[in-house]
Amino acid sequence: MSNIIEIKDLSFAYHGRNVLEDIDLSIEAGSFLGLVGPNGSGKSTLIKCLLGLVTPERGEVRLFGERLSRFHKWEDIGFVSQKANSFNSGFPATVFEVVSMGLYGKVGLFRFLTKKHKEKVREAIRQVEMEAFMHENIGQLSGGQQQRVFIARALVSEPKLLILDEPTVGVDAKSVKRFYTMLKDLNRNKGITLVLVTHDIGAMTEYVTDVACLNKHLHFHGDTKEYEEQEDDMMSRMYGHDVQIITHNHEHHDDHAHDGGHSS
């Protein structure tokens, strides 16, 4: 099978600190990859590099065989970001309006949504079982419901690749299970290639086909079976790295303590 994503020798630094080093990663069409790693391991940064939202210091990214700088078929890629920081929940938009946005890139400038487009929007909403909330404001829904709306928005343009960055943050455990089952269905039955970024390693292994472990370096990439065989070894390697980073960085530590004080 062909590779939908190819990353070669990629490094990225933020304020002089290396966040990603020498990443080589290929993702095959039809796979469901769980990209895992502790908080601050560079997972979201890697996704941002993939999507061209930031430019890496070194290395190359190819999407569907095309170099990132030449890639234009963005409607083939659906992206669902960490909900918490990507939208303002008081925003007055209905579920229908939010899902419609998924077609805007495809429809293009100076054109309006046709009846056919609107039917597609309704279909995507049905796919995530949110049709009862079609004309509700997005801010009035629960975290899990909002996340399903964002999946619908990503699905409406019929992407070949769907990238999800920590989609289950703030979603209750029961909804998470249902959510993962829906993703598995999209992958197995609709043939959509999925990349799921998460720090929650335990929950997703029964749904994904492949696992990649990231903490600045790519520590592991293989199928789920291989992963389960080497799991213990990997955890100590990955989290060993993580401890080092935190003890290096006292400022960060203080920040967190401060935050905790506020919220309590």
Binding site: L51, G52, L53, H72, W74, E75, I77, F79, S81, S86, F87, F91, A93, V98, M101, G102, Y104, G105, K106, R153, S157
Partner: peptide
């Protein structure tokens, strides 16, 4: 206005 990152990704 709703989601600047997503808008940019979809080529706006």
């Amino acid at each position: 206005s709703f989601d600047e990152d997503q808008a940019v990704i979809s080529g706006i």
